[in-house]
Design a protein around this nucleic acid. Structure first.
Length: 192
DNA sequence: TATCCGATGACCT
DNA sequence: GGTCATCGGATAG
């Protein structure tokens, strides 16, 4: 990722979450390339955010959320689905941005081979569990920097949305009122 | 040991 | 469009 994007990640999840809209996620996993443009994110903060996995301090599960900005945080939810996050803030702080939806751009056949032959384009990466599956992300992708040449990369193409919709986060009960969900207003069809 | 917490897909209507 | 079943991880008791 660019130095400018990394600086934005270091500045914290609340600023990084809208900044990540338009950034591309590329995976090279299992011999297949898959690429999509981020259209929906949620910020999870280190302070005052009861819904954040970091709210009660480090555990084995959330350890990578306390790594330096630019690391990947992958966790299992509902005992079945994986969620992909980009760590933000300072090392040891415990902030991250959950990537909730992508507009699929490349490798749609690989995505469909992972998601199911009958899944339409719109449902390939709409939702955090779906996009992790479509990109081939696995539990081994938890932790470590998202390095160029690695399994997962972020590519900043300066494709920032012209308008951003801000609202409450989805599927949480604690701190549910905070306006920390961000969507590309011109790409709502790809959002969850 | 029990209870809470959450995303998705299948099935139904 | 609504309801339901699914399960690992964390915390409380």
């Amino acid at each position: 990722m660019s130095a400018e994007l990394l600086d934005a990640l270091k500045s914290g999840a609340q600023a990084a979450a809208p900044r990540l809209l338009g950034v591309e996620v590329v995976t090279r996993i299992g011999g297949a390339l898959a690429r999509g443009r981020i259209v929906e994110t949620e910020a999870y903060l280190a302070e005052g955010d009861a819904a954040s996995h970091s709210a009660r301090g480090p555990t084995r599960r959330n350890a990578s959320m306390f790594e330096a900005a630019g690391a990947g945080y992958v966790y299992l939810i509902y005992g079945m689905h994986l969620c992909f996050n980009v760590v933000t803030g300072a090392a040891g702080e415990g902030e991250a941005v959950l990537i909730r939806a992508l507009e699929p751009l490349e490798g749609l056949e690989a995505m469909r081979s992972r998601r199911g032959d009958r899944v339409g384009d719109r449902d390939l990466c709409r939702g955090p569990g779906r996009l992790a599956q479509a990109l081939g992300i696995e539990r081994e992708d938890d932790g470590g920097a998202l390095l160029a040449g690695g399994r997962i990369q972020l590519i900043d193409r300066s494709a920032a949305p012209s308008a951003v919709e801000v609202g409450p986060r989805i599927g949480i009960t604690k701190s549910a009122e905070l306006p920390l969900r961000f969507r590309d207003a011109a790409a709502l069809a790809w959002c969850s």
